[in-house]
């Protein structure tokens, strides 16, 4: 029997009071056990989507099933089945780390003894055993994310929603969180995270959806997405030559004959070639250059990054997109009466 997907989203729409259209009809499915990434700039609709899936925000249209439960039919069962860590964290600064976890467990219906045991286990897992008795207010940014993650895991959810779990953290803390998430996923937990960091999406996610202005732009595994942008680029710099005249052009002509080369061009100190697979094409390119008696000083293969994928699909770099007006924060700003950026 085929397993039910962990998350099914069909035609999801969200318009905030005031008319801002945050989600403009998106569809996607997350399979059980998958590590799924939602990539996009600030204000693209990532957080809104996660909040709707987690039943915190109502949708304006569409159909959503989480853990095979329609969120409109039984939101409470959805809440019991999922673990959520939101960007705004929502920790209780005056509470001690361990107390926070135990309370979190109790709220999910776990018995006292089990909640205590589980809290210790999770403190150990996220490397906070030593500070469980300290108030959360005294924690660093990385420690706060980790205690929040531990809180989301208290009731052993099979599906985890994480909203930018590492934004604003130092590289070491990011790495620690990444490792925890990879372990969890290896244990079978379905993880859906939002991120605006290409490296994070690239490292963690088996499959990605790129979202911009409330619409899904493209979807696929990081490698397929990157392959879709274009081939690898091989850059060659020539070494010193006695009589260079014409030899570069000869080499260029020979390279263009190679089946693996899609296109090639000369550069001031050598040439570049766009190929399907840089690793496989490099030896043939070297051989061709060698036959043309051209000394090679350097050869480098560059693969397209997810940045290139984003650029390819939206016509902008993700950082430029960040500078756009942030619709989501603006709505929150109105709502909360303060500016939450």
């Amino acid at each position: 029997m085929q397993r039910q997907p962990a998350v099914v989203v069909q035609g999801l729409e969200k318009t905030y009071p005031g008319g801002t259209r945050a989600i403009d009809g998106i569809d996607f499915t997350v399979e059980q056990g998958e590590f799924f990434g939602f990539l996009g700039p600030n204000g693209a609709g990532k957080t809104t989507t996660i909040k709707i899936l987690a039943t915190l925000l109502s949708k304006s249209g569409g159909h959503v099933e989480v853990a095979s439960i329609d969120i409109d039919e039984d939101a409470r069962s959805v809440r019991a089945a999922i673990g959520v860590a939101l960007q705004e964290v929502g920790l209780d600064d005056l509470s001690k780390g361990r107390d926070f976890l135990v309370l979190q467990g109790r709220l999910y219906g776990i018995g006292r003894a089990e909640a205590n045991r589980r809290a210790d286990e999770l403190l150990e897992l996220v490397g906070l055993s030593g500070v469980g008795k300290r108030k959360i207010g005294s924690y660093s940014g990385g420690m706060r994310r980790r205690i929040d993650l531990a809180g989301a895991l208290m009731h052993r959810p099979n599906i985890l929603f994480l909203d930018e779990p590492t934004s604003g953290l130092d590289p070491q803390s990011r790495l620690a969180i990444w490792e925890h998430l990879e372990d969890l996923n290896a244990q079978g937990v379905t993880i859906m995270l939002t991120t605006q960091h290409m490296d994070e999406a690239d490292r963690l996610c088996r499959r990605l959806a790129i979202i911009d202005h409330g619409r899904l732009v493209t979807e696929g595994s990081p490698s397929t997405l990157k392959a879709g942008v274009g081939g690898d680029v091989v850059r060659v710099s020539f070494g010193p030559m006695d009589s260079p005249d014409g030899r570069a052009d000869t080499a260029l002509g020979a390279l263009c004959q190679l089946p693996s080369v899609r296109e090639a061009d000369t550069t001031p100190d050598g040439l570049t070639a766009t190929v399907d697979d840089g690793g496989a094409a490099a030896p043939a390119i070297l051989r061709t250059l060698n036959d043309a008696e051209i000394p090679v000083a350097n050869l480098a293969v560059t693969r397209p990054s997810l940045d290139d994928v984003f650029l390819h699909h939206t016509g902008r770099e993700i950082r430029e997109a960040d500078a756009d007006e942030d619709a989501e924060s603006r709505v929150w700003g109105q709502w909360m009466g303060v500016n939450r950026r």
Binding site: R79, V84, V89, G90, L91, D92, M336
Partner: peptide, 16 residues
């Protein structure tokens, strides 16, 4: 304070 810190959201996310 609890609304602003997101703590109320955290409670609302739980099945209570």
């Amino acid at each position: 304070t609890d609304i602003m810190s997101g703590y109320v959201d955290k409670l609302l996310l739980s099945p209570v």
